[in-house]
Simulated assay, not measured.
Amino acid sequence: MNFEPALRPARLISRYKRFLADVVTPEGETLTIHCANTGAMTGCATPGDTVWYSTSASLTRKYPHSWELTQTQTGHIICVNTLRANQLVREALATEQIAELSGYPQLRAEVKYGAERSRIDFLLQAHNKPECYIEVKSVTLLQQGKGYFPDAVTVRGQKHLRELASIAQRGERAVMLFTVLHSGIEDVAPARHIDTRYAEQLAQAQQSGVEVLCYKAQLSPAGMWLNQRINLAL
């Protein structure tokens, strides 16, 4: 995925109202930009960090600029636009960059499924294989040298694990795909210290047959590519 037009840098002043941030450009102009990430963004939004933002050509957007990447003062690059995780996975699936999920000619997105009325991020289909249900989560929390998910209690994430477990129990493939969007993260662990219930349900889901994959993206202001499998540390 290439960023076109090219991203522009600015210095972060502050993030507020969950979906807005004020930045100052190298020319000294203060801009209010949109933040698609409504989560905690722990370690991803420190005042003084470099923000890389995109600009929409739409004339109807109130805030035409969107926060895409954070370059921290320690040199790490983080993708904070939560919409990009699914875009990266779709691209990687289409080009068969994820070996464990290759060999499926049909791909559908946002398919309704499950007893709890969920939508699966991706459904892969092939004539000679069980259907493959993929739930995508982005990992950006780095603490003590390790990546963690989630960065806040996630009731919705717990529901997704229950739904995936049900899929696996009926004989279909169910995959939890953690997309690592932080250059400093080398392995991923469930954030038991943040959401104990999620960590417990992840272990239960694996016991039910849910596959857990962790793939890391190469990140730069020029573009992003999901291309490196890393370990899940339990």
Rank of each mutant, 00 (worst) to 15 (best):
T32A: 10
A189F: 07
A205D: 03
R197F: 05
R18V: 02
N2K: 11
R197W: 08
V212S: 03
I78H: 08
M41E: 10
H193N: 12
R117E: 14
S166I: 15
R18T: 09
T179P: 01
C214Y: 11
R192W: 04
F178H: 07
W67H: 02
A168Y: 13
Y113K: 03
Q218N: 11
T179D: 00
T140M: 15
A189E: 13
L20F: 04
T196S: 11
K112G: 14
L177H: 11
Q201C: 00
L20C: 11
A199E: 03
S118D: 02
V212A: 02
R156T: 07
Q204T: 04
F19C: 13
L88H: 01
G48K: 10
G39Y: 06
F178G: 04
K112E: 13
V51H: 10
G28E: 11
L177Q: 08
R197E: 13
L232A: 09
E29M: 10
A174W: 04
Y16D: 14
V136P: 08
L93Q: 00
T50E: 03
Q218L: 09
E131Y: 01
E27I: 04
G28L: 14
Y16K: 13
A205S: 11
T74E: 08
Q106I: 00
V175L: 06
G39P: 08
L181W: 00
V80N: 14
L59E: 07
I77R: 04
A45M: 14
Q228V: 01
K159P: 07
T25W: 03
R8I: 02
E186M: 11
N227W: 01
V24P: 08
P64L: 02
A99Y: 00
